[in-house]
Design a protein around this nucleic acid. Structure first.
Length: 273
DNA sequence: CTGACATCCTGACGGC
DNA sequence: TGCCGTCAGGATGTCA
């Protein structure tokens, strides 16, 4: 399941392969829920545009475009199972392909998404004010004071607050569990009751975990792969996520699984207070 | 406004 | 072997 490190890995990989190219033509599937903008508008905005840069904002892949000398953006959210692949036209089109962009180089950019939680949209006129900024703050660059303020007076469990994209965007279930483990904080603690020292540890742990995961190409849980279809390796470094019943890597206490905010949540009952 | 919870969707997996 | 039920989860919508 793609979160910030996986989305960043995909965006960087796709950027390296297709930036500078022009989109010759676009095909879309007939599954309406995949398209947050109307398919006709997506086709209109993309066709003939030049791809300047592919990057990440939160969990969204942002493709910066130049169209008739004006800026536009193509937004790709991978959901759970979405993939953005650079392929040659003779590569068989996988099942559940929802968009194909034919590029000037002869290659294709394909969006494939079995479970259809992913979303595609465009910003037709991306003036500096209208450029996609995401719903929340960037976990990798947020300052300590702003981070602490985010959780002030929140009654929700800290795990649920970390998953709330309008506070911090980019953190999902894996990195919420991992950062809480490294900060030694129970996922069920009320966000607003965490001490300044705990929030300081949490921010540091979050940045450390995300940075390390980006270095290793993300976590391959379920079926995540990068732009080349290659898996990441960070799952080998997980301390809590998906380790139910296995011994804590620090104290050997079995990792416990509970449900918080409707999401499976993993923690060490000894290390996390 | 805030928080809790159901919903979407399909593939993987376990049990019988 | 094969069928069926259950589970996973990000964002969104609904409801209290």
């Amino acid at each position: 399941m793609p979160e910030l490190p996986e989305v960043e890995t995909v965006a960087n990989g796709v950027h390296a392969r297709i930036h500078g190219q022009t989109i010759r033509s676009v095909w879309t599937s007939n599954k309406p829920q995949t398209f947050k903008s109307a398919p006709d508008e997506i086709i209109e905005v993309l066709t003939g545009s030049r791809i300047d840069r592919v990057h990440r904002v939160g969990k969204t892949i942002v493709v910066d475009l130049t169209r008739n000398k004006k800026s536009a953006q193509f937004l790709v959210h991978l959901g759970m199972t979405g993939r953005l692949l650079v392929s040659t036209p003779d590569t068989p089109v996988p099942a559940h392909t929802h968009a194909i962009l034919a590029l000037g180089s002869g290659k294709e950019l394909r969006f494939v998404d079995a479970r259809r939680f992913g979303r595609l949209s465009v910003i037709a006129s991306a003036t500096p004010e209208e450029k996609y900024a995401g719903p929340g703050a960037e976990p990798l660059t947020i300052g300590l004071e702003e981070f602490i303020t985010l959780f002030h007076n929140r009654k929700t469990p800290i795990k649920a607050a970390l998953l709330n994209q309008s506070l911090l965007h980019g953190v999902g279930n894996i990195y919420a569990d991992e950062s809480l483990f490294h900060a030694g904080i129970r996922p069920t603690r009320h966000a607003g009751r965490l001490t300044r020292a705990e929030l300081t540890r949490l921010r540091a742990a979050l940045i450390k975990v995300l940075t390390e995961a980006i270095k290793l190409g993300g976590s391959s849980v379920s079926d995540y792969v990068d732009a080349d279809g290659v898996a990441g390796f960070f799952q080998l470094h997980h301390h809590a996520y998906s380790r139910t019943g296995q011994p804590c890597r620090i104290c050997a206490t079995p990792i416990k699984r509970i449900v918080v905010g409707g999401r499976s949540t993993h923690f060490c009952p000894t290390c996390q207070k």
